[in-house]
Design a binder for these strands. Structure first.
Lengths: 188, 188, 188, 188
DNA sequence: AATGAATGAGATTTCATTCAT
DNA sequence: AATGAATGAAATCTCATTCAT
């Protein structure tokens, strides 16, 4: 049996931190390896290159976020409760693991190309929920448009907190954001 | 009278196009010069360095967007009409000059550091409008939070169109987005 | 009795294939190990390093080729018969074990330095044969020059087949090449 | 007007020398730049990468060799005279510009892939000559096979000189090689 | 015994910027 | 004035080899 990987997790942690702090392009392999306490070459045993590392991190954390949302939404029956639960789940994540949330948020546009096209995104989850609710007659409108509105409302609030335009912690906005979301949805 | 500079505009156009397509970090001086049909050194005649070019472009276009919004908002008295005018102004810009809109939208996070901190942003404009409306008793709430919600709702719709999750043109969403914005604001 | 090594043969086969396809310098240890279905470290259990593997492969296969030639030449008395037998032996090898032939052929220049200088080469065998024949008065000329001519004539035909300039199989050229060789030698 | 290129020719000369001495794989960009007295980056203004430099050098010198052969062949009417002129032209090149000849000779197999498929090779020239001579009834046989035989005979003699198996200068072999070539061709 | 992780050294290549003409 | 050549520094990545389990 070969020795167990000792650099993999430190590399992931270092990369996440530095990508959030300095941006993906602003962070070099050197930086990551130094912070992880290993050689630069070690990175290449675990990921084909820097881009693959970024994509793997993004997919991993995006999937985590998506799962949280799915779990939260499935835990409630009524639309308002679903929205509140989903919002709470994400905003708590923001407070508990700010790096994960920020990474997913900040990196998304840099990756459009190199992602698998069949990756299920949080947007898909929200859009489907709204399609269901429309089918049930609870709300009206175009599912994708409602999803865009709700997600934007929800995310930009987090960005305002991120850039200091609104004071933290994030969780304090669960209630007011949920209310605004429900007004947008204009549910019966 | 001095003859007009020949390389300046082509360089700006090329830079805008390439920054949107490949990102700022992904675009090199050689790329820009080649697309502009001039030499690499020419760029340094007009801007101190690449960073200055990026900042100048961003400030110019952001200012344009902000001015459009200010003009549109000032052209109307009532809150609903203001929102509609501002939304229409921006979404028309999206359809007419998609590069400008995308540049301002996509490049913002890449630039957080290297920008003057006193730059007046569209967010400031919106936040002030809401502060005024609150002072007038037309709406209630925290101005920055309302601004975050409205801007997010408005922008994410554009991002959905950008990535093909919603069909274009952008201008078709002026009315429904305005309606959702007004529901968020819950104006009297 | 010790159990037989399990990785040795797969490594040799994989190395041979990859060296022929990609060149010695273009083939890495990881490539070889992956193709052989074993670990990279396994290679170092059987050879001191990559260079030693290359040299061992080359010497083994070159010796095989040389032995075939020696055996074939020794099996006949008359010069024409010798040439035909040697040619047939090699061209049959080409058809039966194309990798071996190509390896010896293509890799030789890549290796000039790292080989033992006292390695007996096919060229030496041919040169000696011609020296004998000259001593016997059957042919005239400079042995090394005749060897160069005959070997070149013989090898370049194989290279033409290798690159598709002449159709295979190689064995179809035994007779015409032998005839040309005999005309070059101008034997009595 | 920009400054004239000062590094291009020194880079070509250095590359040719080092490739012949140490092999293409054994020669690094560093080596080349140091020998040329310029920076490593200078190379990339003139060629896209190392491979492109190798290919450009090969094509340039191969074309030169091919032109010499074509000129020599065209300068004579009779087959024997053509062969002698072609052989003399190449062997003189070997003596005068040994680097060029060795480079073309040693590098050929490393490049099979990255070459334009429509590159006219010396082999094509020889094959066509023999096809013509066959059409004229001067010789008989398969043009490509005769070309392989003649080229191999001719080249391997040079390789023997290159590796010290035959004494130089190369030009001393013009006459005996031409005679052997004519015996191979068995011309009327 | 055998693995796959880890590494140091070095390779190629990119880049924004400066320079010489 | 304007070009394209040249550059130093750094980035990414590769490689043969050694190490720890």
């Amino acid at each position: 049996m070969a020795r167990p990987p000792k650099a993999r997790e430190p590399l992931k942690i270092a990369a996440l931190e530095l990508f959030v702090e300095q941006g993906v392009h602003g962070t070099g392999i050197r930086d990551i390896a130094k912070h992880a306490g290993c050689s630069e070459a070690a990175l290449y045993r675990h990921w084909a290159n820097k881009e693959a590392l970024v994509a793997a991190l993004y997919i991993e954390h995006l999937t985590e976020v998506r799962s949280r949302i799915e779990t939260a939404l499935a835990s409630q029956d009524e639309l308002g409760a679903k929205m509140q639960a989903g919002c709470a789940a994400c905003y708590l994540l923001y407070d508990e693991q700010p790096l994960v949330f920020r990474f997913v948020l900040l990196v998304q546009h840099e990756l459009a190309k190199s992602l698998p096209t069949d990756l299920r995104m949080p947007q898909d989850v929200i859009t489907e929920i709204f399609a269901q609710q429309i089918a049930l007659g609870r709300i009206t409108g175009e599912p994708a448009l409602l999803a865009a509105a709700v997600i934007g409302l929800f995310l930009e609030t987090a960005i305002f907190v991120l850039y200091g335009r609104l004071p933290g912690p994030m969780s304090r906005y669960v209630e007011p954001v949920t209310k605004m979301v429900m007004r947008v949805l204009d549910a019966k």
